[in-house]
């Protein structure tokens, strides 16, 4: 009993800190959503009826689902190489996956801008090769946003996938091959089903992270492809409509909490870090 008190004493500063910096301000946001400009649920009605808000939510969902798909597929390929390739290639992939964690979001978004811009590396390169006459619109649209967000999120999705592949008994793959199964058959009916927990974990992590993205879509969307986080920012600092900003925040928060609950139900935390 005494020991328990001691443990709680050690842990207490963290929840306390989180409560002060997250929970209290969030309660403030909840209050705005039902009091600005007047008491009631008017802001929530607007969230689900105002065509502008709905189009932002719809775009956010579309972009995030696309990002989740692209990220999970790429992360799966990378994880496969990381786990099953020869050691030198494994080191290379490991390096490539871990390095981005240390590069700021801003730097990475601007890096993509340099590549994708009308006079960026890709467009000038293609023009010099004579493949195009007019620059392709690769940025300041949803495409640019999806590219930037996918690039940011791939390393996060790799970790649960690598973990699920490392736990795999590779003799099972050998056995399948020995019974005459082609590589594709082994992948489809053995490897993929057996790594499904990792796939679900990776997809949910990506979706949860991507819903709240702010800097990357703001830079690569260039104000034309506004996602929900940027939209909230605009409502607070430019149009000063704190009520609707609060209501959207609460809706976003509820959606993310539901996804996290799903994530915890479907995957065990030990699997993610193992």
């Amino acid at each position: 009993m005494k020991r328990h008190v001691w443990y709680w004493g050690l842990i207490a500063p963290l929840p306390l800190f989180l409560a002060i910096v997250y929970l209290v301000p969030f309660l403030g946001v909840v209050r705005w959503s039902v009091t600005e400009p007047q008491l009631g649920f008017g802001n929530y009605v607007r969230v689900f009826t105002d065509p502008l808000v709905l189009s932002v939510l719809w775009r956010t969902l579309r972009v995030c689902v696309l990002v989740t798909l692209a990220t999970t597929i790429m992360a799966y390929a990378l994880s496969y190489i990381w786990v099953f390739a020869s050691p030198p290639i494994q080191r290379l992939v490991e390096f490539g996956v871990l390095i981005p964690f240390w590069i700021s979001t801003l730097t990475r978004a601007f890096g993509w801008l340099v590549l994708l811009y009308n006079r960026g590396l890709i467009n000038t390169g293609l023009r010099d090769l004579g493949l195009i006459d007019f620059p392709l619109t690769l940025v300041r649209n949803e495409f640019g946003v999806v590219v930037g967000m996918t690039h940011f999120l791939v390393p996060f999705a790799v970790l649960p996938l690598v973990s699920s592949m490392r736990h795999l008994d590779t003799r099972v793959l050998t056995a399948a091959r020995g019974m005459g199964a082609s590589r594709f058959h082994v992948f489809r009916s053995v490897l993929f089903p057996m790594t499904m927990p990792g796939v679900v974990g990776a997809a949910l992590i990506t979706l949860i992270f991507s819903l709240g993205f702010f800097i990357t879509p703001a830079i690569l969307g260039g104000g034309r492809s506004v996602l929900v986080a940027e939209f909230i920012y605009v409502q607070i600092f430019q149009t000063v409509d704190w009520g609707i900003a609060g209501a959207i925040s609460v809706v976003l928060m509820v959606a993310v909490a539901a996804l996290i609950a799903l994530f915890i139900r479907l995957t065990r935390v030990e699997q993610m870090v193992g």
Partner: peptide, 12 residues
């Protein structure tokens, strides 16, 4: 036909 050490059955 092959029987592996540890059987290598498909767990799923």
């Amino acid at each position: 036909g092959m029987v592996f050490q540890g059987y290598a059955l498909f767990p799923h």
